[in-house]
Design a protein around this nucleic acid. Structure first.
Length: 526
RNA sequence: GCGUCCUUAGCUCAGUCGGAUAGAGCAAUGCCCUUCUAAGGCAUCGGUCAGAGGUUCGAAUCCUCUAGGGCGUACCA
């Protein structure tokens, strides 16, 4: 709707006019403060300018009224326009809020190391990324969801060591020397048992088999992770393993040209001039590549696959990494601007008001799957999607578990269920309801209709600004309006029953579409 | 130290391409089910938008400084 009004104004005035939604609906559906900025230029008072502009519209089919109030120009959409738009949406529910944007986007997110199950911090990135994915696809972008698997390097060696020590200690009852860093947790005990039964005790003792066990375990763990993600409706199109990339190393190094150099037996990338503090080692003097090396080949591979844009969702602790990866991208001959990195800030947990420190290696992590079990995937998704991802988020784990009926996701779903109940209860057929006209609604009903029809611009805004919380915020507001309307207005048996039910169908459509973009299913009955 | 993200109600958070009276949820208090699902609605309480300057018709929003916090500042991932 906003686009339509905006386009109309652009044609009329030959420039973009800022449109806002007034908080007070008595000011109309849209308004613009344009007269204020014009007043200096035209040397006239904003009031007079607004009055002149408003009256220049005369009768227009899209607007029921265009008025000037205290320098603002307020637009009220015509009932015919709203009715026509709502009817179109109801009969084209799949297209409602969708668009035909063009462009291919590679979205990489989660990419948690395959050394343990996902914890609650990963969940935030997963929910944020998947919501972005659903929004982008709805808008027509051709998006690929990718998971980068760090299946090489120190953490894989450590996984093998940890696995053997765990087995020798708990299964074989040996006294073992624990290194400073190692992985632990229930999943590791389970894996050790599986090693014992599948490969025998020797496999737990023979240090030369660590690597083999580590690679075996990492596949098992990746399966765990994929299942965890599946439980919250997150699916990936592609998985790229770090280890598989190293065949390309020589070619990629040659491609970087002067971007890399050798010093004292180490290979470094010249990132210092490109926003980084200093140059970074990519290959150690013993020939082992660093983590950055893998990322360089990976990003080269990404760009060679030829997407138009790239979005990475990283944990905020990786933010210092952006400059060096972008430096590598420009040395590789690509435009670093095409890579957009969204940081998802830390999730810090409180337990009974006290900070709850998580440590993956000490096994004190709060696993995502445990939280999902407690509160359900819907609530988890709604909660994380509601928070701006660039703010550190803090919540009490006990409080989160307690959330049941007070959870906003139920509030929104309840609104949808109420509508479905009414539709089922009414003796009118869907056809009859659809034939009703939405002209002549009360002010409250008009407000509800307008709110419901805002969904498309919320979707667009949420995706383009990467601020996915705008969608859950909107759904909460829409549900609140619905609940109030439901309370105030008796629908069944109302003389305008058809009209009101049609209005509610539009609301239900927006809620259902909105929820599905959050990876949550709308309920018909609760 | 430097970089970076932040600081809004008792708590958790929205609101920032500068606009009309700063909003929700939770918590607290009180009302509303012989009425389509009370998983709901209504009302009350609660704010120096961290602080100080600046920009202008107008600032929670933009700029500068100060204070406080998170994260980073590895040849770890």
């Amino acid at each position: 709707m906003k686009q339509r009004v905006s386009a109309l104004l652009r044609d009329k005035f030959n420039c973009d006019i800022i449109l806002e939604k007034p908080k007070d609906r008595s000011f109309g559906h849209f308004s613009t403060p344009i007269a204020f900025s014009l007043s200096k230029e035209l040397r006239k008072s904003p009031m007079i300018i607004a009055e002149e502009i408003a009256s220049s519209f005369g009768e227009h089919e899209m607007f029921g009224a265009v008025e000037s109030v205290k320098g603002y120009i307020n637009f009220r959409l015509s009932e015919a326009f709203l009715d026509e738009y709502a009817s179109w949406a109801l009969s084209n529910d799949k297209q409602f809020g969708s668009d035909d944007k063009k462009g291919t986007i590679l979205l990489e997110f989660v990419s948690a190391n395959p050394t343990g199950p996902l914890h609650i911090g990963h969940a935030r990135g997963a929910v944020y990324g998947d919501t972005l994915l659903r929004l982008g696809r709805h808008l027509g972008y051709d998006m690929t969801a990718e998971y980068y698997v760090n299946d090489a390097g120190n953490q894989i060696d450590l996984l093998g060591t940890s696995l053997q020590l765990e087995g020798r200690s708990t299964l074989l009852g040996e006294e073992v020397q624990w290194p400073e860093k190692y992985y632990r947790g229930e999943y590791l005990s389970d894996l050790a048992k599986e090693v014992q039964s599948q490969f025998g005790d020797d496999a737990l003792r023979d240090e030369s088999r660590q690597k083999e066990l580590a690679l075996w375990a990492k596949d098992k763990i990746l399966e765990l992770i994929i299942n965890d993600l599946k439980a919250i409706n997150v699916h990936f199109d592609t998985f790229v393993g770090e280890a598989s990339l190293y065949d390309e190393w020589d070619r990629v190094m040659a491609k970087m040209g002067d971007g890399v150099y050798v010093d004292e037996g180490k290979t470094l990338i010249r990132s210092s001039g490109l926003g980084d503090d200093h140059d970074r080692v990519v290959v150690r003097d013993d020939g082992r590549p660093t983590y950055l090396a893998g990322d360089i080949i990976y990003h080269n591979q990404k760009f060679e696959r030829g997407f138009q844009n790239y979005i990475n969702i990283w944990g905020a602790d990786h933010h210092g990494y952006i400059a060096r990866v972008k430096a590598a991208i420009s040395f590789l001959g690509y435009d670093p601007e095409k890579l957009e990195v969204q940081l998802s800030q830390m999730v810090s947990l409180l337990k009974d008001g006290e900070p709850y420190k998580m440590s993956k290696r000490a096994g004190t992590v709060i696993q995502m799957s445990d939280v999902v079990e407690e509160i359900g995937a819907d609530a988890l998704r709604f909660m994380f999607a509601s928070k701006k991802c660039d703010t550190a988020l803090e919540f009490d784990i006990e409080e989160l578990k307690r959330q049941d009926s007070s959870n906003p996701v139920y509030y929104v779903q309840y609104a949808h269920a109420r509508i479905q109940t009414l539709i089922a209860k009414s003796e009118m057929s869907l056809d009859d309801i659809m034939k009703s006209s939405l002209i002549g609604l009360s002010a409250d009903a008009d407000g509800l209709l307008f709110e419901a029809l805002l969904l498309p611009e919320i979707i667009e805004d949420a995706f383009e600004s990467r601020q996915v919380q705008k969608l859950p915020d909107y759904l909460k507001a829409l549900a609140a309006k619905l609940h109030k309307f439901y309370y105030d207005t008796r629908i069944i048996g109302n003389e305008d029953e058809g009209k009101l039910l049609k209005l509610l169908l539009v609301v239900a459509l927006s809620i259902k579409t909105g929820l599905s973009l959050l990876g949550i299913e709308a309920k018909d009955r609760m």
